[in-house]
Each structure stands twice: as structure tokens, then as C-alpha cells.
Design a protein around this nucleic acid. Structure first.
Lengths: 353, 353
DNA sequence: TCGGTAGTGTACATCGATGCAAGGATCGAT
DNA sequence: ATCGATCCTTGCATCGATGTACACTACCGA
């Protein structure tokens, strides 16, 4: 039915191998032959069967982008758009897998128990599995981790410096003269490494500024969604002494917090300033527009994909950690002038010992 | 390296063919053999090589979800999440392709000039190609179209009734007593079928209510993004007689419009009521929360995927049109009581003549 | 004249699974 | 004892491409 390499070979009067050589741009094919074959290919409308090619080459031609949340979470959809593009540039196919943070699903995907070694490599944003579990998985394909560092695990890793970023955000609030600065999004769970780092940055900044660390101002949330933010903010407003600023661990929490504030008639930023994290597009169109930590998502995508393909091409060097640049995007929800605090330069950080 | 069917066969002392029979749950395998093979499979950790299987079966095991906009557009990311799940349920892999509405890219994907018949089927949300062009493509794989109907083309089709939905939205504004109702999102372009239908519903509702159709209140936008909405709203506010309500052709436009209104100190809904279209999560957390037409996205995804798989399973019946249910979600941006107007029941509409 | 090598093209095996068709085994019926 | 039918298992070919190894032609320098 479909045109195969044999059909082309017959039509051009050469062997299938020669057709293959032309298709793959093997150097030693005479100009004449090459032209003849190319004409046959065009005439017949031949397209290589990628399944066959991949079987022969021992690859699947696909990499998975494993996400801990459904695609409708803006941070991940924005990131995914970049990753898809980067992968497509390399004539590979990227498949998005949604784990919903379920450890079982993450395990299954990575250890390829799921669809049967369907992927040549993984870009993995873990949630359900903690560092040790991930490191202990016997994964055969290259994996690049996104997000929190798996300490000295066998994987490459791309992440923002969460402590610095949190310091940047909270420092901004301090500089604006805020004194009761709350935090929304702490996670006392096993997998909440991101949250822990951000809380650390928050705490250190307060202490450096001579502000007391008040437990009641740190609200834990099970997830990082809008409704969690709304609920957390409600709890903060109910305090005897409510905060005059909030640092939300992501923009969705901030969206929810803002909603609660505005519904309660609290003025933002006059009464309460709000800072988010992620810089999703949604935040720029809020009223007031959201001040937020803006990680370079394009950089995350391109560093991760680039590193993954290095591994696919056989690079067997030590695992590498990349630190992704970020900046504070100051907008109306804090309104201060334009504080500058930026992350590191856009390049690799260091190989690990 | 990887465990193959031969390894299992040797280990279990049977032929590869028998292993295959067990894996594929062929009926006539003795309980004893089946058990033995299964044990070997577990012991060795065998996983079928899907590439090989697909080659043999003449399939790729993949379907493409072809989107006209990047994934970070909320409507599409929400829809994609559903589609991915539906496809995964069927042990197939869904791949998201972003065309950015480029006709060339759409053409290439569908006519499989791109990656070489990589997909067994397509769920295609067209933008760059118009009805005729799509219909004229010589696509071999089954295609289910999302969005505007390709009149009597050879494809199955899932869409909302845009005219009714627009009527529902505008009718709601009329019922609230609004008299100068604007529309944002008209598209005089060749591919703007969605927009045209919505404008039609808008216009018919006005006329039915005895309100004049005023060209100046209908603002065209090149795209359906937030900034287009913001800009369009600014233009409307600059009119000598600004509107007292706006019907936006999607929620992103409404987000932008709302932003402009709030920045200008216009009260919503008191001075201007706003209705959107799509019911993205973002709208529910706006202040004021966005009234919007809520299409059943889960239904879109499941109808489209179900129909696609019918085709993959060999159903060669006439092309079918599905009409997707919708409802008006009344929220703060119009604030009226709870108008009810719903779309059709959730089932197939009709086969075409 | 002969060996060497660079340039072209081909034959055959192979990647890992499944379709096909036929070979045995078992059992009941005649 | 023989025949069929049913149940179970297998050998071989095949899906469409590419890796390997080798054959053949020119042309080079010795």
C-alpha cells in the first residue's frame, strides 16, 4: 500500500541499500545516481517508514516529558510548549505524560513498565517520588530532571536556585517596608522539596532583616492551585494581626490569594502586597498585575532538551546540574519601583563530584 | 541488551510464537504453559518492543492532536489534558503538534509529508486552512475535526453550535437590560469561521431584541489573545458612546478587556458587563469572576477520541457531526441571577447526507 | 605491471514482533 | 481401530529499514 524503499529501488533501477544511502545522505553516491533516486522518491512520494527505521536503529524516536500535573496548569503548559518546540527541532517526537504526581505512575513510566520502553529518554518533573526513590530506580534511558535537585543522583538536572529566588522575592517586600510578611505554599510533606527551599529563603531573608519568623504566617497547602491559595489567604486574613504582604510559592496560589483579598475588600498592594512565583501569562493580566519571580522557561526547556540529546548521542560524562536564570518582575501587586535582582548567568553550573 | 520474546521463549522452553500468544491473550494456550510463560516474563522483566509490534501490525500506535495555537493557550491546554487521558485509556500514545495556525504546517502534518506517516490518526483543530483546502487534502489516516464545520467534507467533526451559544451569551446581556452591547473578536479573514458564526448569533439576538446593529461596536481582532482583548476594549472605551456590555469571543479576549476596563476605572458589571466564551479556569478567579459560555470540554475530547478510534477500528460509515453541549456560567462579570440556557443533549447530532 | 585506495554499489542478515498455515496431541464418536 | 474435531504449539515468512562486508571500477604511485 504505502511506498517502500523497495518500490523506489525498483523504480530507480538500484538496490534498496542505495536508496537508503541517498535518503541518509551517505557521501559516496554518485551525483547521477543520487539524482535518479531523488526523482523516483518524488515521483512515487516515498516517505521512510519511521517505525521500521527505529526498529532497525534500536530507538523509538520519542522522548517523554513527564509532568506531575495536568497540562492545564499554566506553568507546565507554558514550559511544555517550549519543550515540544525544542524536541521537534531535532526531528524527534515529544510525548507529554501526566502523572498527577502519583508515585506509581512515575515509577511505572520511568522504569518503562508502562508502555514498554517506548521512550529513548525522559525529561522528568517529579512530584510523587522523592530523591532517593528516583535515584534508586533502575532507569536505562537518559533522564533529565526538572525542579528539585536529586542530591548526587545519577541524573542530569535543571533547576532554578529556589533559595535565592525566594530571597529575592521576600527581599523585595522587605525593601518596600513590609513587616508582617506571610508565606503561602509550604509543604511539610516528604516530596515538598521545592516548598522547603522557598521557605528557607523566606526565613533567612526575614532573619537577615531583623524580622521575627512567625509560624502563623506560614501557611501550608496540599497543592499549588488557585483554590489552595484562596483558602490559605482566608486563613491569614482571619488572624488577629493579618499580614501586610504575602509571598506565594507559585502564581496560581497568588491568583487565589488575590481573589480572596479583593473579595474581602482588602487593597492590593496598599494593604497587602503580593508576590508570586513562575511568571505565568495569567498574572500579567490580573488587576493588579502580579509581581513575580520569573524563571527563564525557554532556558529550562532548551537546557533540558540539549542535555538530553547529548546523552542520547552517547555522552557518558558525569551528571550535570544546570542553574536557570531568573529575575523579579515587579508589577502592580507590589508596585515598588523596579527592584533588580537576578539569577545567575544562563550557563551550566557545575558537574558534580 | 533488552529482553526479547526469544529470551522469554528460551527461558520458558517454548517457541517465541507461544510467548506472543500469551502476551496477546490468545485463547488456546494451556493454563500450564500460560503460567510458565508468565512466570518467565516476570522473571526476566520482559516488555514487548512496541516498535517491532507496530512495524509488524502496520500501525504506529500514535495519534496526533494538532493544535492551531501553542499549548500555553488555556483553552487548548485544558482540552489537551482531556484528550491525552482519553487516548491513554486506549493504550495509544497521543502527540501534540503545534501548528501556530500556519497553513504549510497544517498541510504538511495532515498529508504526512512531515515526519513520514507517523500517525495512525488525527484530531485536528484547523486554523490556517479553510474548509475547502482541508477537504481537498489527500489524507489517508482518519481525521476528526474540532471546531468549525467543514461543510460536507470527508471528515468527522466535533463542535459546539456557535450561533446558539452566541445567542445565549448575548441574550443574557439583553435580559439584564443592556442596550449598547459590543462584540470583540470578529474576524473578517478567510479562516475566521468561528468568529463569523459568533457574530451571526450576536447580530440575530440584537435584532430579535429590537436593538440596532452598530458596526462600531463590533471590533475585529487578529487573534484571540489577552492583548487583543485589551486593545479592542480600549478602542471601545474611546467611542463617543461606549458600550454597556461586551461579548468577547473567547475568555482570553475577555481577560484583556477586563484588564482595560478595570485600569480605566470602569466598574464591572455596573458600568459594563462582560461575557466570555470557553470557560477557562482563569476566568473563575478573576475579580469579578467571568460569566462565560462553558462548552463541555470533556465531552469534546471523549467524543472526538471515541470517533477516531471507531475509524481506526475500521468503521467506514459516513462522516458524522457531533454537537457538543454547552451552558452559560453566570458569574460576577454580569452578575444577573442564574439565567439558564443550555446547549443540546450530549449526543451525536446527525450523519450527513 | 602490480598493489593500493578512494569511490560506488550491492547481497545478505538483522532489528523484534506477529500472520499464516500446518503439525501434533487428545478425546469422543463411530 | 479409525476418523474428525478441538485444542495447543510451532516453523517460517514478513513488516521496512539499515549494518556489515564485500565486489567492482578507476586511478594513483612505485
Amino acid at each position: 500500500m504505502a511506498v517502500t524503499i523497495y518500490d523506489v529501488a525498483r523504480h530507480a533501477g538500484v538496490s534498496p541499500r542505495t536508496v537508503s544511502n541517498v535518503v541518509n545522505e551517505y557521501a559516496f553516491v554518485s551525483a547521477t545516481t543520487r539524482e535518479r533516486v531523488k526523482r523516483s522518491i518524488d515521483t512515487l512520494g516515498y516517505l521512510p517508514n519511521l517505525t521500521a527505521r527505529n526498529l532497525r536503529r534500536g530507538r523509538t524516536g520519542m522522548v517523554a516529558l513527564v509532568l506531575p500535573e495536568p497540562l492545564h496548569i499554566p506553568y507546565f503548559s507554558e514550559l511544555s510548549a517550549f519543550v515540544l518546540d525544542e524536541v521537534a527541532k531535532r526531528s524527534y517526537t515529544a510525548v507529554i505524560e501526566q502523572t498527577d504526581g502519583e508515585p506509581e505512575r512515575e515509577r511505572a513510566l520511568l522504569s518503562a513498565n508502562d508502555r514498554g520502553r517506548l521512550f529513548d529518554g525522559f525529561i522528568f518533573s517529579p512530584l510523587g517520588l522523592n530523591s532517593k526513590e528516583i535515584a534508586s530506580l533502575a532507569v536505562k534511558a537518559p533522564v533529565v530532571l526538572l525542579g528539585e535537585r536529586v542530591s548526587s543522583g545519577p541524573f542530569d538536572h535543571v533547576a532554578i536556585d529556589n533559595v535565592s529566588a525566594a530571597k529575592c522575592a521576600v527581599g523585595h517586600l522587605v525593601a518596600l517596608g513590609r513587616r508582617r510578611i506571610a508565606a503561602i505554599g509550604h509543604q511539610p510533606y516528604e516530596t515538598g522539596e521545592t516548598a522547603r527551599l522557598r521557605t528557607q529563603g523566606y526565613r533567612e531573608t526575614l532573619e537577615a532583616a531583623g524580622l521575627a519568623y512567625d509560624k502563623r504566617l506560614v501557611v501550608s497547602t496540599p497543592l499549588f492551585h488557585r483554590d489552595n491559595g484562596a483558602e490559605a489567604m482566608a486563613r491569614l486574613l482571619a488572624l488577629a494581626k493579618p499580614p501586610d504582604a504575602v509571598f506565594c510559592y507559585n502564581d496560581l496560589l497568588a491568583v487565589g490569594a488575590l481573589r480572596t483579598l479583593l473579595r474581602a475588600g482588602v487593597r492590593v498592594p496598599e494593604d497587602v502586597a503580593v508576590v508570586g512565583f513562575d511568571d505565568i501569562e495569567e498574572g500579567r493580566y490580573l488587576t493588579p498585575a502580579l509581581t513575580t519571580i520569573s524563571p527563564d522557561k525557554q532556558a529550562i526547556a532548551s537546557l533540558a532538551v540539549k542535555q538530553l540529546f547529548k546523552r542520547l548521542d552517547g555522552d557518558a560524562g558525569r551528571p550535570v546540574d544546570f542553574e536557570v536564570p531568573f529575575r523579579l518582575a515587579v508589577r502592580e501587586s507590589t508596585q515598588g519601583g523596579s527592584e533588580a535582582c537576578e539569577g545567575p548567568p544562563p550557563r551550566p553550573k557545575a558537574g558534580r563530584p
